[in-house]
Simulated assay, not measured.
Amino acid sequence: MQLLFIADPLESFKTYKDTTFAMMREAQRRGHTISACLPQDVMWERGAPVRAHVRDIELTGQAQEWYRVRQERAEALAGFSAVLMRKDPPFDSEYFYATHLLEQAEREGARVFNRPRALRDHPEKLAIMEFAQFIGPTLVTRDARDIRRFHAEHRDIILKPLDGMGGMGIFRVGADGLNLGSITETLNRGGAQSLMVQKFLPEIAQGDKRVLIIGGKPVPFCLARIPQGDEVRGNLAAGGKGVAQPLSARDREIAEALGPILHARGLLLVGVDVIGDYVTEINVTSPTCFQEIQQQTGCDVAALFIDALEAELDAGRPGT
C-alpha cells in the first residue's frame, strides 16, 4: 500500500508518544510506503484532480533524525492506496475547507480515513448530543441567562469553548458562583459565541478516560488521564498523568453502542472521552494515546489500526 498522511509538520512530532508516528512505523514494518504533507499542500485546479505536494519518506529508526526524504513530488490523492487525515485540532475554517478538498478527492476515487463528511458531521464537543443516554447534564448555549440557570441547578459546573483542544479554555465554577459572569463573557464573547456547560463530575479524580474505537470495535485498554495537584483538567497537554487500564464494563457498553454507528459513517478511528460513567467528548479528527497504551500494557494499538485499515481497503469500501 501507498499511504499518504496529511498531518502537522513532521519536524514537530514527539516520536516517543505521537500516534501518527506509531501508525507510520507499523505501516512501514509491514512493507507499506509512506508519504506525508501538510493540509496547505493540498490543492485543486479545474481540469485536474485534487493533488498535493508530498514528501515520500522512510523512517530511520533513530530518535532524532527519525525520517529521511526519498523524494518530493506532486501527486493526485487518488493515486494513493489510502489518505489518512491526521491534522490535529482545532477544527477551524481551514480544516473545514480541507474536508471539502478531500471530499472532492473521494469523488475522484481517493480512499480517505476518517471520511471527510464524517469529520464535518461530528464536531468533537457537539457529537455527544446524539448519544444523550450516555452523557451527564450538559448545556450548549451562548446565552448567559441559560448558564446562570444551569449553574443554579447543578451548583458545580465546567465551562468550555466548543473549538478547544488539549484542555484549553476549560473553567470550573463551584457553588459560590465566583467569576461565573466574567468566565461566561470570556467564553461566549458577549453572546457572540456558543459554549458547552457540563455538570462537574467528581470522578475526574480517577481520570478522564480515552476509549479508542477502531473499525467499530473497542480497544481493550483505555488511557485514564488523571489530573495532578489542584488541576481540574486531566488532559496530557495540561499536565495530566496517563495511566493505561482495562476497559470497565461501562466503558465497553459505551464503545460497543457507539462503535458500529460511527464506523458505518466512515469513522475508522474514534476516541471517546469518558469520566466515570459518562461520555464527555467524541474525538474524530486526530485521536491519540496509541503509544501510551502500548508502552504500559503491551497492547499494540497501531497494529490494530493498520489491521483495520488493510481490511477496509481489501473490502473496497472508500473511506468506510
Rank of each mutant, 00 (worst) to 15 (best):
A175E: 14
G166E: 05
I183P: 07
R172T: 04
G164W: 09
I204S: 03
V197K: 03
L178V: 13
G167L: 03
A175S: 10
L195N: 03
D208L: 10
L187W: 06
M165A: 15
N179Q: 13
E185D: 09
I170S: 07
M165Q: 14
D176G: 12
E203M: 05
Q193G: 05
E203T: 01
P202C: 08
R210F: 04
Q198V: 10
V197G: 01
A192I: 09
T186I: 15
A205Y: 03
G169T: 07
A205E: 10
R172A: 06
I204K: 00
K209Y: 13
V173R: 04
S182D: 14
L187D: 00
S182V: 13
L180V: 02
N179T: 11
D208V: 06
I204Y: 01
V197D: 01
N179L: 15
R189H: 13
R210C: 03
D176N: 13
I204H: 02
R172D: 02
L178F: 12
Q193W: 10
G207P: 01
F171D: 01
F171S: 00
G174I: 04
L178Q: 14
K199V: 15
Q193N: 13
G191M: 05
A192T: 12
M168E: 15
L180N: 03
G174C: 08
G207V: 01
K199E: 15
G174E: 07
F200W: 10
D208Q: 12
G167I: 03
D176P: 06
L201Q: 11
V173M: 12
Q198K: 06
R172L: 05
K209I: 11
L195D: 01
G169S: 08
G207T: 02
Q206F: 08
G167V: 05
L201K: 09
R189W: 08
Q193Y: 08
A175G: 10
R189C: 14
R189S: 15
L178C: 13
M168H: 15
F200I: 05
G190P: 02
I170N: 04
G190I: 07
V173H: 07
G169Q: 04
M165Y: 15
Q193A: 05
G169C: 06
D176V: 07
G207D: 01
M196H: 07
L195E: 02
L195Q: 03
T186Y: 11
M196N: 06
G191S: 06
A192G: 14
G169P: 11
A175F: 10
G166S: 11
I204W: 00
G167N: 07
S194K: 15
A192Y: 14
